[in-house]
Design a protein around this nucleic acid. Structure first.
Lengths: 224, 224
DNA sequence: ACGTCCATCTCGAGT
DNA sequence: ACTCGAGGTGGACGT
């Protein structure tokens, strides 16, 4: 890892062309050749960058200014003109042990699979990831009367989740073995527009309390 | 901007929880309070981070190890334990003049607006960004028989683009002035699943050749 | 402020 | 290798 602070101008050409006028920025050069150009604002996304695999050629521009020419795999190029280098240091970081994530939608799905009755009175699980031609339905259940219920689970319930469940229901209701199939749209939070669309299509909405579900969960079943 | 290289452990708690074991990493602290933790690989996305607005409290852990506690707006927290600091420098970058971008979907829309007949024989443009209650239709056209045609343009044609066009068509076909309105889904590349869905809904697909369109384009109309 | 949609998206899982 | 869906998506542009 090499960290450089410099007055620089950056030009990218690839899927699009992008230009950064001369200014002071931080340039991060990773060991895999990738380059990130950061300013002192914005979010985690660099102003300009080159993803690996790529390589850097250090040279000099026609005006005698130091220049880095980064070339990516699809002929993408990133050209960095270094007018003035204010800082330059290299660091051996070693290999990172990596990020450990815990749960989002998957965990929510596990919890709801264990406690389907929290979605609707008398609901029982048929199976998780119920396969269809256009993808798996998160939970396939049966209600107290033995009718099929398809459940789509999202962390945040938005309009595209309703569209997705609608497609599943459309397909599932063509199957004489299953029909009639109704839908439940389950999420920790359901946006008003999604709720309106769901209701309009006869899909029930269920707001789930993640923490409450975790409380119901038996911790002895898990390792963490 | 402050750049720190340190052996550190990082824990995030917010929408999810994520843990980084003790290892050497680069920590970037921007002036707006945001923090980025980078390793020597991956792409431009940090291993862990906190987006602005947020603030950092520098303290000491129970074991007497320096600790940064970053708190975000939704109660998100990022805790960084600094076991050993290998580098620490601060830099005044000033305000960045910002990135200038050119091209992609917008340009494609301009080109197709100039050459609608490449989408379908005899097609003529009515207007770009044709307004509807649920958003603008990319191109509203008329075919050789004078019937309305709504065109949705994407760089890559995926399923959600078909959904989008479907919603437009559903709405447009309620308008007695316009109906019947048919749809064309135009993209540089159309995914098989998107094509299947479009065909099933009676929407035509058009694969557009960006470079060929650029060739047809009159360069004297542009500045670049 | 919220909603919608694009992105040099990135990233991971499944086929 | 490719495809598909999710993201602590981020960011721009509209109402």
């Amino acid at each position: 890892m090499r960290l450089v602070v410099a007055r620089c101008q950056v030009d990218y050409a690839g899927r699009l062309t992008a230009h950064l006028p001369m200014a002071t920025r931080v340039i991060m050069r990773k060991n895999d050749g990738s380059v990130l150009v950061h300013s002192d604002g914005g979010s985690y996304k660099p102003l300009n960058w080159m993803s690996p695999p790529c390589k850097v050629a250090e040279g000099t521009s026609e005006e005698g200014v130091p220049e880095w020419l980064v070339t990516g795999k699809d002929g993408d190029t990133l050209r960095i003109l270094l007018e003035e280098v204010l800082h330059d240091s290299a660091h051996d970081l070693g290999v990172d042990p990596g990020l450990q994530k815990d749960g989002v939608e998957k965990h929510l799905q596990e919890l709801l699979a264990e406690h389907p009755a929290t979605l609707a009175e008398g609901l029982t699980l048929v199976r998780r990831e119920f396969p269809t031609a256009i993808g798996p339905v998160d939970l396939m259940c049966r209600d107290a009367e033995g009718r099929s219920v398809a459940v789509e689970i999202k962390r945040r319930g938005e309009i595209d989740g309703v569209e997705q469940l609608t497609r599943y229901l459309e397909l599932l209701n063509r199957d004489p073995q299953l029909r009639p199939v109704r839908g439940i749209f389950a999420a920790q939070e359901i946006k008003p527009q999604a709720r309106v669309l769901a209701t309009d299509r006869g899909i029930a909405c269920a707001v789930v309390d993640y923490d409450a579900l975790r409380g119901m969960d038996d911790p002895t079943e898990r390792l963490f």
